[in-house]
Amino acid sequence: MGSAKNTSTPSRKDRIAEMRQADRARERRNRVLAVVGGAVAVAALGVGGFLLFSHTSDGSADKADSKPWPAYKVTEDGEKVWGKLGRKHVTRQVDYPMTPPVGGDHDEAWMNCNGDVYDKELPEVNAVHSLEHGAVWVTYNDKADPADVRKLAAKVKATPYSLMSPVEDQKDPVMLTAWAHQRTVSGADDPKVKEFFSRYVQGKQTPEPRRRTPRPRATPRRSPSWRRM
């Protein structure tokens, strides 16, 4: 009996010691897991913040900075006039709310506008840059009278800081556009044509006036399918 009691008592103590040691090991393991988990969470937050910062610091940042378009007013004789427009140089396409556009963010390269007449549609982002420097842009669609197109082309060719091109999606057959100004005219003989050119070719509305005849620029980076007449 005594022999059996003496052998069982150490065994129970050993089991208790093993249980306590296992408990301490679990506690240490839990503490380690908690520390590692916290570090992972912090790292994840850091990576998420970096990715968010990177997303807003790459080429999409200029898109995020875009401001709402100002409303326009219509004068008594039908000319549309916009408020202050954005003027950032961007590398993306711009969703202009009017056709053709009257201003706004645009490409860093402008279309040649030294009396240039094009027979293909132009990249809007490049034509808008021409407007920024005081050009008047004459546009027409397939409803325009061919005789009017020829007369207007002759006027543009004789006028530095002007350009002309077709815009099939525009509302009216013949339209005239300067920075923040636009009107429809009935044709080449409409008196408003001369008035518009006189007022807006390098006019007071020009954000960046240039006092010399514009020099030719390199082909815009988007390789538009246009050519001059």
Rank of each mutant, 00 (worst) to 15 (best):
E76P: 01
E76K: 15
D77H: 04
D77S: 10
D77L: 03
D77M: 01
G78L: 11
G78F: 11
G78P: 11
G78S: 07
G78M: 11
E79Q: 15
E79H: 01
E79D: 12
K80A: 14
K80Y: 11
K80F: 10
V81Q: 12
V81M: 03
W82I: 07
W82E: 08
W82L: 09
W82G: 03
W82R: 06
W82S: 05
G83V: 11
L85M: 10
L85P: 02
L85E: 02
G86E: 14
G86P: 00
R87L: 14
R87E: 15
R87C: 00
H89V: 01
H89D: 12
H89S: 07
H89M: 02
H89I: 01
V90N: 03
T91Y: 07
R92G: 11
R92H: 15
R92Q: 14
Q93F: 09
Q93V: 05
V94F: 10
V94G: 09
V94N: 09
D95V: 02
Y96W: 09
Y96V: 07
P97K: 06
P97E: 08
P97Q: 07
M98E: 13
M98T: 14
T99S: 14
T99E: 12
T99F: 07
T99P: 00
P100L: 08
P100K: 06
P101D: 07
V102F: 05
V102A: 03
G103V: 06
G103P: 10
D105C: 04
D105E: 12
D105R: 05
D105F: 05
D105P: 08
D107Q: 14
D107R: 14
D107F: 13
E108Y: 14
E108I: 14
A109D: 15
W110Y: 14
M111E: 14
M111H: 13
N112C: 06
N114M: 04
N114V: 04
G115Y: 07
G115S: 08
G115K: 05
G115L: 09
D116P: 00
D116A: 13
V117E: 06
V117T: 08
V117D: 08
Y118S: 02
Y118D: 02
Y118P: 04
K120V: 01
K120N: 08
K120A: 07
E121W: 01
E121R: 08
L122F: 01
P123W: 10
P123G: 10
V125L: 09
V125P: 00
V125Q: 10
A127N: 04
H129W: 03
H129F: 03
H129C: 03
S130C: 09
S130F: 11
L131M: 06
E132Y: 12
E132K: 13
E132A: 15
E132I: 10
